[in-house]
Amino acid sequence: MTIQRMENVGIVVEDLEAAKAFFVELGLKVLGEGPVEGDWVDRVVGLDGVRVEVVMVGTPDGHGRLELMKFRAPKARVGDGHAPANTLGIRRIAFAVDDIDAAVAGLRARGVQLVGGVERYEDSYRLCYVRGPEGIIIMLSEQIG
């Protein structure tokens, strides 16, 4: 067995429309959306009576996808929407951008705040963390070197 590619990263959210708008603002494209339910999904995820709304978004290059999910049933468990970057588990998603200042300005116009600041890593990158809806941490990275 050999892994062929990463298929997607799933993110469970309470406000699906806000999450979709956030990732579209970042430049991802909506690839599809709709309800998912039935015995087959119950068996796959190991839950009973699953009813979930899904929005699949993808990066412009076609290589990265996020599956945004709002569980109608069973009710999603509440996590810590303010967990810091050193909390165990999947903590952030990183995206390469061509202009970090423009990306940050566009997000700030939508009320998104930086976690820290925009910083330079050697002569290679400018980086920052922003916290999106549901407490999702996104790292933006602009290659400069």
Rank of each mutant, 00 (worst) to 15 (best):
V52S: 03
V52H: 01
E53R: 05
E53W: 04
V54R: 04
V54W: 08
V54N: 11
V55Q: 03
M56D: 05
M56P: 01
V57C: 10
G58T: 01
G58W: 10
G58I: 01
P60F: 11
P60L: 12
D61Y: 03
G62R: 01
G62H: 11
G62T: 07
G62P: 06
H63I: 09
H63R: 15
H63S: 10
G64I: 03
G64M: 05
G64H: 13
G64N: 12
R65Q: 08
L66P: 04
E67S: 03
E67I: 03
E67R: 00
E67Q: 07
E67A: 02
L68G: 00
K70V: 00
K70E: 11
K70P: 01
F71V: 01
A73W: 09
A73D: 13
P74M: 10
K75H: 05
K75S: 14
K75G: 07
A76G: 02
A76P: 06
R77S: 04
R77G: 00
R77D: 03
V78L: 12
V78H: 13
V78K: 15
V78D: 03
G79A: 14
G79N: 07
G79F: 09
G79L: 11
D80W: 06
G81H: 10
H82R: 12
H82L: 07
A83R: 14
A83Q: 06
A83S: 12
A83F: 04
P84C: 09
A85E: 15
A85I: 13
A85Q: 14
N86H: 12
T87R: 02
I90R: 12
R91F: 06
R92H: 15
R92K: 10
I93H: 13
I93N: 07
I93Q: 13
A94T: 15
A94M: 15
A94G: 15
F95S: 02
F95A: 02
F95H: 08
F95V: 04
F95Y: 14
A96G: 07
A96M: 13
A96P: 07
A96I: 08
A96E: 13
V97G: 00
D98A: 12
D99R: 00
D99E: 13
D101C: 01
D101R: 10
A102G: 02
V104H: 11
V104I: 03
V104W: 10
A105F: 01
A105E: 14
A105T: 00
A105K: 02
G106C: 04
G106D: 14
G106E: 05
G106R: 14
L107P: 08
L107E: 02
R108A: 08
R108D: 08
R108M: 09
R108Y: 02
R108N: 07
A109Y: 04
